[in-house]
Nucleic acid binder design. Sequence first.
DNA 1: GTGAAAGCGCTAACAC
DNA 2: GTGTTAGCGCTTTCAC
Lengths: 331, 331
Amino acid sequence: MNVTIKDVAKAANVSVATVSRVLNGSANVSQESAKRVNDAIRELKYSPNFLGRNLRKCGTNRILVIQPSSEHSLYAKIIAGMQEEAEKAGFDIVTAISNGSTASESRQLDMLYNRTVDGAVLLGTSLDKDTINGIAENFNIALCCEGVHGANVLTVVVNDEAGGHDATKALLEKGHRRIAMISVQGDVISSTEREKGYKRALSEYGIEPREDYIWHGDYEYENAALAMKQFMSLEEKPTAVFAVSDNLAAGAIKQASEMGIKVGSELAVIGFDGITWCERFVPSISSVAQPCAEMGRLVAQKLIANMTEDNKDRQQYTLQHKVVLRESTGD
Amino acid sequence: MNVTIKDVAKAANVSVATVSRVLNGSANVSQESAKRVNDAIRELKYSPNFLGRNLRKCGTNRILVIQPSSEHSLYAKIIAGMQEEAEKAGFDIVTAISNGSTASESRQLDMLYNRTVDGAVLLGTSLDKDTINGIAENFNIALCCEGVHGANVLTVVVNDEAGGHDATKALLEKGHRRIAMISVQGDVISSTEREKGYKRALSEYGIEPREDYIWHGDYEYENAALAMKQFMSLEEKPTAVFAVSDNLAAGAIKQASEMGIKVGSELAVIGFDGITWCERFVPSISSVAQPCAEMGRLVAQKLIANMTEDNKDRQQYTLQHKVVLRESTGD
DNA sequence: GTGAAAGCGCTAACAC
DNA sequence: GTGTTAGCGCTTTCAC
């Protein structure tokens, strides 16, 4: 199976240039030659070697997506959107998992430096702004899902502040006044923004945010149990919880059920992201859904455009979230 | 950022051959030259262009994994295992999503034909045995998770028959005698094997399998609800359900809860796969866990070995599953 | 220990 | 419309 363009040329009795022209759909080939070439290709089971093509073209038509985890359906949905858009432009998407480690993420980015891919999309990156800006000087990259302060690159996110606000407001409108929040530690923009929105919604209802109603942990599912234990040990227990992710919301519900608290009637819980398991969970989980497919399509489209543009689009695009109420916030 | 090996050679005042030797860790380079080269590399921020290297080496050190869906944590865990093993051998893993479509899967396999990757692992393929055997004549591929009858390629699976048997036996040992099964339609080996195991376990307890206790649908989560409705409309309702996947088990539990049936006490449910959400679900879901990481490591290791071997290993490896009982089967 | 040079498979500029 | 040829960046003989 080492048939090359030369073999095809010989079999079709034309030059390699003509074969290449047929391969690339050039108009300047006679019907006859084209037919002979195509016959030879079929007969020899020829498939062009992209190693040669890519080297010559200095490009791969391939985009790398680095995701912290592959178990998160949020990312899966975004990647599906990217794939849809990339396909139209003749690009392939390849994915790599960073496990949230900066070292691993840097290593994956080697694919950019060594020309294995033409560009990269970072989902929830752990790189800092200087690193990102440095890369962006020479390569086409984009951030999706999670922005980075001071990073001057193409970014596609939702308005996290507004999402946090709307989630909290939904709980307020259901009559809740003691609303806790499960947030995450550190300088994670999405999370701090959602927290800002939470506080803004509370203040709109004249409620002073209480520090003991805000838990700062990590993104791990297990963390939500700790948060719930703390909340439920308080004198004035919250009647509703806004979790910064659906995974954490699920963890909170799980812990509540173990404490014998009925979620939906005795306690309202709302998450963020809109992952598949929201609908599957018992009870189904209310959530602020991100427009994943749309985010994926947009970031792919803009990134691919940047590859042929001289002045790069380094805008931040903010797409519209949607509050979806399900059983976990009651009727 | 278009610095090539030539630039480095010039800067270090050596030939490109010497730079290449340093790059590839050849012994035949003097300490002095090596130092000068490494300095130049650092100074010029040189990164070798893999397009050139791969073309020359006729290889990419890259393995493609095609998965039907990226939302399935079973696959995610397997891929993580592959990544671990591949890294040791200096290989990268790239993934592509087929959405379960044969056409899409075929298109993804172009990466094999056009030399973008050196080999491929198919997770739950939808290709038939002839196609697979045809590909295997010229390329290094492996099946994982799901075998194909008559496919003579490297395969890593669990013993599905034994798994189905053990799941059913666990229910029998808990005293259940009316055990239903949610299976899938068509010629899916894993599913038909699990069904065989289910029937064997029943017969060991002198129980005749009932056709109205076996549902054949598709893999979609929603399908489990239909199955449950059917089961619960029967005169003699089952007291336990074995679902062929954890997703279906979750769907069954969800439907049960909507029917007001308490899973764990009134109805036992066990799934298959051992996905992350088993533990998170309310109630947590009993399951036949597949040794995902181990499966991934093994398939990667054997596939990489095949790339350098002349006589390919086309064995089927069967790894050990593990029954994990949780809340959904009661105490 | 080092360099010159061939060539991996392909595309595209150029000549006809 | 078609063929000839240079060259993409790299590795690896081969000669010294």
